[in-house]
């Protein structure tokens, strides 16, 4: 459903993606792990056109991703994104945040969208916060609203860019719980994360990225339990046993 073919991307003189080829099937959960600065987030950002890419091709359900083409709107309405820092709209209520896209981008009927918005908030455990404003919520609650906002677009896939990295440790579980339920329901997900437990339990596949290339990829449990490449082994050792 999402296909990347030999994708290259440079910021100035620094080449951050050096030929990424990967695909994500419908209903699959793929985790991308790797050291910071390895290009993990850039891959996500290229998939929904927040960044341009220099060479190669990315397509979503056969439609080429080109951030300067009008078709990018279609891709973005099909592939939602959840950000590390939530990026909720602080001037709108929680419910308004959730229904913003369906109402103003997809122009769906108001009553129907509001009903769906409330149902989604209930699904992420925040039904009673519908009229609150984002700054009044904890980080974990904000991220769950952000997931509801992504779901409200009725996307075919959701991209998660380090969704728990900005959270206090005790709030991480709530967000991962919501994500796990989504995965169980068959949502196609690409997750950049440092949560190895989540990757092991929830992901179908894991990609290990370092230095702008996919160093190793495979089924989640196999890759995380018995990494073959020395760089993967080294990375996992540091992440799992930091002391």
């Amino acid at each position: 459903m999402i296909e990347l073919t030999d994708v290259h991307k440079s910021f100035g003189k620094v080449e951050v993606l050096k030929g990424i080829t990967a695909n994500v099937e419908k209903g699959e959960v793929v985790c991308i792990i790797g050291p910071s600065g390895s290009g993990k987030s850039t891959i996500l950002r290229c998939i929904n056109g927040l960044e341009s890419y220099d060479r190669g091709e990315i397509s979503v359900e056969g439609l080429k991703v080109d951030r300067d083409a009008p078709s990018i709107v279609k891709i973005r309405t099909q592939v939602s994104m959840v950000f590390q820092r939530f990026n909720l709209f602080p001037h709108r209520s929680v419910l308004e945040n959730v229904v913003e896209g369906p109402l103003f981008v997809k122009k769906e009927p108001r009553a129907q969208v509001l009903e769906r918005g409330r149902a989604l908030l209930a699904q992420v455990g925040l039904a009673e916060k519908a009229d609150a404003h984002p700054p009044q919520l904890s980080g974990g609650q904000q991220q769950r609203v952000a997931i509801a906002r992504a779901l409200a677009m009725q996307p075919k896939a959701i991209l998660f860019d380090e969704p728990t990295s900005a959270l206090d440790p005790e709030l991480v579980g709530d967000v991962l719980g919501v994500m796990r339920k989504l995965a169980d329901d068959g949502m196609t997900m690409v997750v950049v994360t440092h949560e190895m437990g989540f990757a092991r339990d929830v992901a179908d596949r894991v990609l290990f990225i370092d230095g702008g290339v996919i160093v190793e990829q495979g089924p989640a449990k196999a890759l995380l339990n018995q990494p073959r490449h020395p760089r993967t082994q080294d990375f996992l050792r540091r992440v799992l046993h930091p002391l």
Binding site: L50, M81, F83, F89
Partner: peptide, 10 residues
């Protein structure tokens, strides 16, 4: 991030 969030919902 606000602008990116807006773009990401199309």
């Amino acid at each position: 991030g606000q602008i990116e969030a807006a773009q990401s919902i199309g």
